[in-house]
Design a protein around this nucleic acid. Structure first.
Lengths: 196, 196
DNA sequence: GAGATTGTTGAGCGAGTGCTCTACAATTTC
DNA sequence: GAAATTGTAGAGCACTCGCTCAACAATCTC
């Protein structure tokens, strides 16, 4: 079947993902991507078709790994509220130390591209819906466990989505752990019952 | 003193502001700006120096008009909580109908440019600090009026900043009034006292 | 091994980028 | 009105953009 690939597509995609994540779509040129991936333009275009194709592949990869892991953390925690605390704790960690110091690839791309790429906007909306559903589930479980104040419940999920998006924005100013932690704590404090 | 300007600088700046606001920095070319402003490159460069200079001027104009008006709304309202409700109501309105359907210029630019332009990041941080201070003042007044639950107060200001940034992100998906209103209502519901 | 097929290389395409500069137009001072 | 000064018009600069393609390299089938 002819010559075999000499590079790992998944590995190259990971490098492209990080480059887009850090720099955004427009500010990342093919030349820069080629250097980062250690590939020639021809190989990139044979594997991914176009700059947009490479970006979409990176976005999918992000959803399947980074994003999915975060959602999983909310879903599998023992208590509903515990799962939320765990999620926010890891979010803050990643924003201080990890790759989330560049914010969130979905948030960044949504802000940069939603206005002129409806197809991508669909992907972004699905991502946000997944996160919202996950929050709603945790809030329902927390409610059942009597952990929430009266009035708080799954209908508070959109607020948590907004808070996370806001933290993704603020993370780009590198605000430091206390500031980020305070936001997460305040958000949850508004949901829990006051008699503890 | 030679020939006089045949165009209104402030008016042209307003057009550039809207163009940057809708399309972002990188995706807005000088050519496009010239067409929108109905000016030739020479005139633009004589008046603003560079693309970045024009952008910075637009950003300043935004802070002095759009942004200042919103902050003023929080500061001058009679009650602390009333001021916050008023602010969020107008925010939602502008996101559904007005120019905030493109989100917020500061949020958009922060996400797109903070990583590689420290000087701009300083401007963004000052803007966010102003908003936070304004929120803290309103929360202090609301607390004094007994409108808040125990534990809520000026220290909740960063949360409100995050919520607003999050709404700015979500606005780009054109989510519709109910979704945006629900977020604002949930945010305030987490701050007010439960016995009313 | 021969022939076919596929991947890699890297020069280079047309288009578009931010920006400049000269020729000309309008307004000033004298 | 003459000279000086400033703004405008628009062609065009050097460069970068996303992307292509012909030549070569490696692996397949027979």
């Amino acid at each position: 079947m002819g010559r075999t690939r000499t590079f790992d597509v998944a590995e190259a995609l990971g490098v492209a993902l990080d480059t887009f994540w850090e720099r955004g779509y427009e500010a990342t040129s093919i030349q820069l991507l080629c250097e980062a991936m250690d590939l020639q333009p021809g190989s990139v275009y044979a594997a991914f078709g176009s700059k947009r194709g490479l970006f979409v592949a990176a976005l999918r990869s992000y959803a399947e790994t980074v994003s999915a892991e975060a959602v999983e953390r909310i879903n599998t925690a023992a208590g509903g509220l515990a799962g939320l605390r765990d999620y926010f704790a890891h979010l803050v960690d990643a924003m201080v130390d990890g790759r989330r110091r560049w914010g969130c690839l979905v948030t960044n791309s949504l802000v940069e591209l939603a206005e002129r790429d409806p197809e991508l906007t669909g992907m972004f909306e699905r991502h946000l819906a997944t996160l919202s559903t996950s929050f709603a589930g945790a809030l329902t479980r927390a409610r059942a466990a009597g952990e929430l104040r009266p009035g708080a419940g799954p209908e508070s999920a959109p607020l948590l989505v907004a808070v996370v998006q806001g933290m993704n924005v603020l993370a780009k100013t590198r605000p430091g752990r206390p500031a980020l932690q305070a936001i997460a704590d305040s958000a949850l404090a508004g949901l829990v019952s006051t008699q503890d």
